[in-house]
């Protein structure tokens, strides 16, 4: 059956099996930034924004979403024109293997869209539902705080150096 879904601002008529998840439908349509990690709504690597709100695409049936708006990572930016959150993830070393990154960037976007200057605790809360096995989450949280600052045009510097170095924060 057909699911008329707006993906990243462009209307699409997705031909789907009625039992097909949005994850499978999006990947079949070429949106490979949506990742398959657990297929039971726990790891967050398949997160997309549904009308601006983070959802696990593995728990949504595509056919049920007729008329809804979906944002995938491809709708946010490209390596040449990255979204400020993507850039902050890259600058703050918030990307290791990168498999969880698109989902986390999208949840961060929903957070910053809702309120421009979240606290660190709010960023951590926004990532509840995303599992990352590489990083320990410190750098992603810093990345979102940095992106928030940049989006608010206040700017922060980041250090790099070779001396004794203390990082990490909560």
């Amino acid at each position: 059956m057909t699911a008329n879904i707006e993906v990243n601002g462009a209307p699409r008529a997705l031909e789907v099996d009625p039992g097909e998840t949005l994850l499978d439908a999006l990947r079949a349509a070429g949106f490979k930034g949506v990742k398959r990690g657990c297929e039971n709504g726990t790891c967050g690597s398949c997160v997309v924004l549904l009308d601006g709100v983070p959802h696990f695409s593995c728990l949504l049936l595509a056919a049920a979403l007729d008329g809804r708006k979906v944002t995938t990572i491809e709708g946010l930016g490209t390596p040449d024109a990255p979204h400020p959150i993507m850039r902050a993830f890259a600058e703050e070393a918030g990307v290791q293997c990168g498999y969880c990154t698109p989902g986390m960037v999208l949840s961060a976007k929903a957070l910053l869209d809702a309120g421009p200057r979240p606290t660190e605790a709010e960023v951590r809360e926004a990532f509840d539902g995303h599992l990352c096995r590489c990083t320990g989450y410190v750098k992603q949280v810093q990345a979102v705080l940095r992106a928030a600052a940049e989006l608010g045009n206040t700017g922060t510097g980041t250090g790099s150096g070779t001396g004794e170095r203390t990082g990490g924060a909560r």
């Binding site: 709504g41 726990t42 967050g44 997160v47 959802h55 539902g129």
Partner: peptide, 9 residues
């Protein structure tokens, strides 16, 4: 209930 993202579902 679950995680923050799951609570949207």
């Amino acid at each position: 209930v679950g995680t923050r993202v799951l609570r949207n579902h």
